[in-house]
Amino acid sequence: MLEIKNVSKRYYNTIQALSDVSLVMGSGEIVGLFGENGSGKTTLLKCILGYIRHEGEVLLDGEKIGRNNIARLSFATCEHSFFPNMTPKDHSEFYRMHFGTFRGKRFKALMDFFGLPEDRVLKHYSTGQKNQFEVILALCQGADYILMDEPFAGNDMFNREDFYKVLLGILEPGETVFLSTHLIGEVEHFVSRAVVLRNGRLLGDAEVLALEEQGSSLEEYIKGIYNYRPDRVSRALDKLTGQ
């Protein structure tokens, strides 16, 4: 179980990126993290991983995240976290050496499925291929909690579709995915739970199944939290054009 307790983060003593965020994620959940740009999604993921200092605490099965359990978390980011001058083959050797739980078979299978060349250095991959490889590494590290920060930015929709299907197919019951994305409509049938941030605060946490039973879609739920007004664009245009 991953417990996030009262996590707050302030940048440069002025920007309150996160305010008192508390959340619990159980084993095997696929949780979507949603929110507008600047709502604190990336900051939350980095706080969980211990990449940035924060107030509050993050516990993994009751223990603070440290050297003993950090390998139970993996991370895929749209910024990419691989070594650009190394090949996928080099990466698999590196991961195998440092992460005792590296899943070599899954790595090979995913590389073959997406047709990614193993002997080409990653800086020569296309953006979409880099994104795919980034997610493959996160999935194959052997982590229990797989955190993904907008991993599909730049991938075409067929690519993304394939990935969701593959993910659902290969994830084991004990693997938890925490996915930050703007592609609400696409992941609605993929995630089991939705967490919504706004201005650094956690304003929404709902089971997707429960939303469906209420006759609401994930998009409507998020729009409701954001008080999204459908006519805001036309009102803004009217103001601009002076009508």
């Binding site: 991983l49 993996s74 980011t77 976290s81 650009p84 440092h98």
Partner: peptide, 16 residues
């Protein structure tokens, strides 16, 4: 600069 610091900081070994 390469972003690989995100991997390095997740390595379980001490002081790698």
């Amino acid at each position: 600069d390469t972003g690989s610091i995100y991997v390095m900081r997740r390595l379980p070994g001490k002081g790698i």
